Simulated scan of single mutants.
Amino acid sequence: MEPRTEMPAEIDELDAVRVRRAELRESLNFLERCLAAPASGRAVVWGEAVHDALRTLATDFGAHIEVTEGPDGLHQAILTRDLRLANAVTGLTNEHAGMAAEIDTLVADSEPPVAEQDVDELRERATRLLGHLVRHRQTGADLVYEAFHTDVGGVD
Rank of each mutant, 00 (worst) to 15 (best):
A108D: 09
R135L: 14
A9G: 07
A77C: 03
V44N: 07
R25Y: 07
L24G: 03
V134C: 02
L83Q: 13
A126G: 06
I11D: 13
A101M: 11
V45A: 15
P8K: 08
Q76L: 08
D109V: 00
D12I: 12
I78T: 07
P113D: 00
A86I: 10
G98V: 06
L133T: 07
I65N: 07
P71W: 05
H75S: 10
V114N: 02
T59N: 08
D142Y: 05
H51W: 08
L83E: 15
P8L: 09
A43V: 06
V50K: 01
H96M: 08
E2F: 12
A22E: 11
R137F: 03
R4T: 10
N29D: 15
S40T: 11
A53T: 03
L85Y: 07
A147Y: 07
T59D: 08
R21L: 13
N29Y: 08
A63N: 13
G91P: 00
V17Q: 12
A37L: 10
E102A: 13
D109L: 14
R123M: 01
L83V: 11
A16W: 01
E146I: 03
E116A: 15
I78D: 07
L31Q: 05
L24S: 02
G62Q: 09
F61N: 03
L133Q: 11
D104R: 15
A141L: 09
L85P: 05
A115D: 08
D52M: 10
A86P: 00
L79S: 07
D60K: 09
L79V: 08
P113M: 04
V89Q: 05
A77H: 14
D109S: 11
V44Q: 15
L79C: 01
A141M: 02
E102H: 13
Q138D: 13
H64V: 00
R18Q: 12
H149D: 14
L129T: 03
P3F: 14
R128M: 10
A37C: 03
H96T: 06
